[in-house]
């Protein structure tokens, strides 16, 4: 399988690359997307709480940090996907994978700081759901994954991610609408917990 990772900046991304390579896949990272004619699996690895993104409302909101985080954690992955769609269209697999966190979900967010990260990833969730609705009829499938960075070793999280990204989810050819999990837009974490929005 031809796999494209947007960047190898994080320990998780490096471990994920190694995991894919050890399974015999051809991995490209951060290269000029236009050189790739086919991508089977696309992984946007941008997932970082930026320096300075540690203020509460009592400390004072730093809008420039929030917008910088938006550019890194939300806009960059979406623009990378936009640039990769020609190569993904040429694949029969067409799977796109993104990283996020339970901390960016309204239901379960218990944080008082990290506005930049949480708001950027919350925005990403919704942008991806619309994009999923747009691309699923063309045969695309999507994975949204919380690597639980800082909680699990990167190698363990990368192993679980590779499993989640590469394996199929339930598909019932006789009842495609109701019994195909590929039709569900969902966030799973590295412990295989389904996270509520």
């Amino acid at each position: 399988m031809k796999i494209y990772l947007t960047s190898l900046e994080s320990a998780f991304a490096k471990a994920l690359k190694n995991e894919f390579v050890s399974r015999g896949h051809e991995v490209f990272a951060g290269e000029d997307l236009q050189k790739l004619s086919v991508i089977d699996l696309f992984v946007a690895t941008e997932n970082k709480r930026l320096d300075g993104d540690d203020f509460t409302v009592n400390d004072g909101i730093k809008p420039e940090i929030v917008l910088e985080s938006l550019r890194y954690n939300m806009i960059a992955p979406i623009k990378a996907l936009e640039a990769a769609t020609n190569a993904l269209d040429a694949s029969e697999i067409k799977r796109v994978c993104f990283l996020s966190s339970h901390k960016a979900c309204v239901t379960g967010c218990e944080e008082t700081s990290g506005y930049g990260y949480n708001m950027a990833k919350a925005a990403l969730h919704q942008a991806l759901h619309l994009t999923f609705n747009r691309l699923r009829p063309e045969g695309y499938t999507m994975r949204l994954y919380d690597p639980l960075e800082g909680e699990l070793p990167a190698e363990v999280s990368a192993f679980t991610a590779a499993e989640f990204f590469l394996r199929s989810r339930s598909y019932d050819p006789d009842n495609k609408e109701n019994r195909s999990d590929e039709h569900n837009f969902a966030l799973y974490d590295a412990k295989n917990r389904h996270i509520s929005w």
């Binding site: 409302v57 960016a104 309204v106 008082t112 949480n118 919350a122």
Partner: peptide, 16 residues
């Protein structure tokens, strides 16, 4: 997406 980001920001305000 901007309104989803708003919701999580409100949750964080509530947390504080």
């Amino acid at each position: 997406m901007s309104k989803t980001a708003l919701n999580v920001a409100v949750r964080m305000l509530q947390n504080t």
